[in-house]
Nucleic acid binder design. Sequence first.
DNA 1: CGCCCGACTTAGTATCAGAAGC
DNA 2: GCTTCTGATACTAAGTCGGGCG
Length: 610
Amino acid sequence: MAKKNVAAAAKKKAVEAKVQKKVLLKTEDDYEPVNRWWDKEDGAASGKKGAKKWDTFEHHGLMFAPDYESHGIPIKYNGQEIKLPVDCEELATYWTSVKGTDYETKEIFIKNFWDAFLAKIKKTDLKDTITDFEKCDFSKIADWRASEREKRNNRSKEEKAAEKEVNDKETAWYSHGLVDGIREKLGAYRMEPPQLFRGRGEHPKQGMFKKRTLPESCTINIGLDAPVPRPFGVPGHAWKDVVHENHVQWIASFEDGVLGETKYVSFAATTGLKGQPDMLKYDRARRLLKKVEDIRSSYERLQKGKNIVDKQKATATYFIDKLALRVGGEKDTEEAADTVGCCSLRVEHVQLENTPEHPFTIHLDFLGKDSIRFKNSVTVTEQVYNNISDFTKGKKPTEQLFDKVSPPVVNEYFKEFMEDLTAKVFRTYNASYTLQKELAKFDIKKKDRISQDELVKFYNDANRQVAILCNHQKAVSKTHDASMQKMKEQKMSLKKQYEAHKAHLKWLENPDLSKKPKNSDDMKLPKDAETCRRKIVEIKLRIEKHSTSMKDKEDNKLVSLGTSKVNYMDPRITVAWCKKVDLAIERVFPRTVRTKFPWAMHAPSKYLFD
DNA sequence: CGCCCGACTTAGTATCAGAAGC
DNA sequence: GCTTCTGATACTAAGTCGGGCG
């Protein structure tokens, strides 16, 4: 009987293992897609911009944000409780959602929110009652929100699972489209819910109300023969338009509820529709490698010339090439934050220094994309130094440094060397080149003596060099200091253990000669010398590992590695290096990255640039 | 030829779930 | 078993660039 039970249990285990394996395989399938577009005859050809994307095309349209549900919680005005009309309450509720963020205290944000809120108030009986932001107290709504969140977090496992199932069922209807009969995952098919606009930096429109998107501002793109989806969940509404454009990659476009710009709903990064152009991008960077010497000698020559446009564009190109600056198009400061790139640099953003300590040095300090600060000092050639000095002469700080050039001028110049070369290719090229250069520093002779953790560290260091080059930053996490402190304490404790074990070992080896060390922390110490020795090695390893991860954390405090991984570094370089050093790709490429680059996952073991 | 717009890539952050630590 | 940490992902803002248009 007992035997039978054992056998049954074993069988059950085997089945479980099988099921488990199936689940795992399913995950792996994500980057072993059925549609191996990169293996096909026309390969990446259809990834070209403007190329035909499909013959038949079907999808279920867009998922609209749920209606606002009134909670009926009042605000306090001048200490007095006031229940707001629903549309005012809605705005007040969105205001409380920025509680705890920087927006809460930003003047522009508050002003824009208040203008929007007051505009609604003015249409009600409260127009003479509510007039002053300072007298408003939204904390009751904020508290309600907090308690709702608490409730949500405290849901039982079963509740969460049940909710997830309902959710998955609902989204499954929308989540994929059929492109030439192949089921492809979509990107963000959920319409942006109404909220207060969170523009970055000193965006003049931050805090404005971003209106709900209704079908009337959405255009659907779908196959000519496919059934046109209805705008579900918003009865009585109709699409603005239905088109059948097969030379674009979007399934729907809509007008943004605050900026009025057109936004697109497209496919997920894992699909061929996104993957094909992406692969071509890295090939472009690869071709740039073959031309870059020509380009460099060209711009060095033009820097010396008489023609002011040539001189400026050649000097600007130097920055794009050496500092990986973005090209920097013109921006309307009424509509957007004041940020710049190479061509839009102003005199106030550069400072020149030519001293024995810092010969031919240019100090750059400006806000780039997303209002991320670029602060860097570089030693340049004498020629570039003199040119910059020239370009600043007689100009006010707010005037453009390269006043004679603009992105089209620079990009047209690049066309002389390569038909599809533009400024941004330099970033891709420089990022990939830097990664390869850094990884190549690895001494392959050390391969067998180095741990996987150390290999990962080495890779991350290379990755970090790229991120620094591209100026990819992130905010310091709110818990950074606290967790750093904690790690320091852990390190101390490990060191203490190490010392104690060492002293203990000494005593174990020579119980007669040495005094038994006192065990102040009631540590559990081994009974025999052999175990103690093993333990010492183990603790030492733990200390090393701990220190490495501490250093990694500190080094990555402000640097974001993800952006370069996903957008800049040719994945084939990473795959090739991992093969060479016997490191599992999973250690350096998270699943999201692996699924984005299925075409690179089996790249040959050679470097991109050889 | 300059400007605007359509389409697409690149970017940082909020949020959530599962893993790891206590 | 509860809490904290971490990585994945969802979200949406903000760039680039080519082409069309006046």
